[in-house]
Simulated assay, not measured.
Amino acid sequence: MEVRNASKLIGQFAMVGQLGLSLLMPLLMCLFACYLLVSKLSAPLWVYIIGFILGIGASMTTAYKVYLSVVHKEEKKKIKKDPNEVYFSKHI
């Protein structure tokens, strides 16, 4: 029982870490691309604003996809746990 709880806790920490990276990396990549545009191609500085907005949008999209995958995994676990459970539409 103790090992199962520990592995579940480690899995939850890994999921939080993955969510953190999913939020941070698209923003950093967009800002780095803006830095390259400004430094190498002499683009105007307002390019950073566009890069920030695109990075936030990409972060939100990625976080939503991670959330959907977690919900999908939990639904699979719930179905596997108790297949004989009686639901509202299942009367027998």
Rank of each mutant, 00 (worst) to 15 (best):
I10S: 04
H72W: 08
Y87D: 08
S7I: 14
V47T: 15
D82I: 03
L45I: 10
K40R: 13
V70I: 14
K65C: 11
L28H: 09
W46Q: 04
K65S: 15
G55I: 00
R4S: 07
I49H: 04
M60E: 11
L54I: 11
Y64F: 15
G57Y: 13
V38K: 00
Y67V: 04
I53G: 01
T61S: 14
M15F: 03
L36N: 12
V86R: 07
M15T: 10
P44M: 01
S39D: 14
Y64T: 15
S22Q: 03
L27N: 00
V3L: 09
T61E: 12
A58Y: 11
M29P: 00
E85H: 15
A63P: 01
G55V: 05
I92P: 01
H91F: 11
L9K: 10
M29G: 03
P26N: 04
E74K: 14
L27F: 13
S42W: 02
S89A: 12
Y48G: 00
A33Y: 01
L23T: 13
V70F: 10
F52Y: 14
M1C: 05
C34I: 03
A6T: 14
P44K: 02
I56G: 01
Q12I: 05
K8N: 12
G20F: 06
S39M: 11
H72F: 10
L45Y: 12
I49C: 07
L9R: 11
T61F: 14
Y48T: 03
G17Q: 06
A33G: 09
W46S: 09
L21H: 08
H91Y: 07
V71G: 02
L27E: 04
Y67M: 09
I53D: 04
V38L: 02
Y87E: 13
K77S: 12
C30D: 05
I92D: 06
F13G: 09
S39F: 10
M15K: 05
T62W: 07
K40L: 13
L31E: 08
K8H: 05
M1I: 06
G17H: 02
Y64S: 13
Y64V: 10
K76G: 04
G11L: 05
K80F: 10
M15D: 05
I79E: 10
E75W: 08
I56S: 02
N5A: 13
P26D: 02
L68D: 15
A14E: 13
E2W: 04
A43M: 12
K90L: 08
N84I: 04
G17I: 06
W46I: 09
G20Q: 01
L54K: 02
E75D: 12
S59L: 01
F13P: 00
Y48K: 00
E75Q: 14
L36F: 13
K90S: 08
N84P: 00
N5T: 14
I92T: 07
M1Q: 05
P83Y: 01
L36I: 09
G55R: 01
C34M: 07
L27V: 13
Q12F: 10
M1S: 10
K73S: 12
M29C: 08
C34N: 03
Q18W: 05
I56R: 01
K77C: 08
K65Y: 15
C30V: 04
S42Y: 03
I50H: 02
G11R: 09
A58R: 05
S89L: 15
E74G: 06
